[in-house]
Design a protein around this nucleic acid. Sequence first.
DNA 1: TATATAATTAGGTAATCGTCTAATCGTTTT
DNA 2: AAAACGATTAGACGATTACCTAATTATATA
Lengths: 113, 113
Amino acid sequence: MSMQMIFEALASPVRRKILAYVAHHEMNAGDIAARFDMSKPSISQHLQLLEHAGLVASEKRGKFVYYKQVPDTLASTLTGFVQDVCPIGGPIRRESAELARKAKAAEAEKPAE
Amino acid sequence: MSMQMIFEALASPVRRKILAYVAHHEMNAGDIAARFDMSKPSISQHLQLLEHAGLVASEKRGKFVYYKQVPDTLASTLTGFVQDVCPIGGPIRRESAELARKAKAAEAEKPAE
DNA sequence: TATATAATTAGGTAATCGTCTAATCGTTTT
DNA sequence: AAAACGATTAGACGATTACCTAATTATATA
């Protein structure tokens, strides 16, 4: 849940891909593992690392364990970091503006929340 | 310069600290190393990794090698990533708003560019 | 030109990371 | 209650990473 754990979690391409899978809808461990050319235990370990970092949450229902992203942690950590490190002024707000534009466009395309 | 290299670079606390040092003004390798309880060659290695990731640039002047942050890469990579992975809509723009507020406050405090 | 200083390269070692297979735990179904 | 299925834990292995010291390169200065 610390900044260190979050950056460590994001350092792996596999974990970033997992994160993208569970960003918009939950998915169980097996279905996630099926997307990778890797054993289930390995994926399980990546999932745990993501969970310890506070980036995903799991819920067991019957035989299955479902994973989904915890929405706010990532955005706030990364923007906080950028805030600290980047020369304040231009770049961040420029990105913010573009971000807002894209988000608005995406929302228009998919009106259902 | 790829996304992978950037996240890898950010995974180390030492490298994030270096990045913070060179964010707002350049600094030579020795002065950077003096801030850490670590040998100069080790810091040199971290600096090269940051440079290969495209996050800092170096310039040799006389005996010294000066490092400074490349300003836009980090912000655009991280916001691009957040854009991909986070549930679109609320969180990003909420952060953006807060970011803009803080940046404005900081600018008021230090009017010289 | 010889010496001193800044920085990097080279080479080596300990620790960590990512992966695998085999074994275990919990749940469901027959 | 036994068998099947989903997931995690345990243990082992190879590759990578992070660090160190010693040696080297490049520049400046006595």
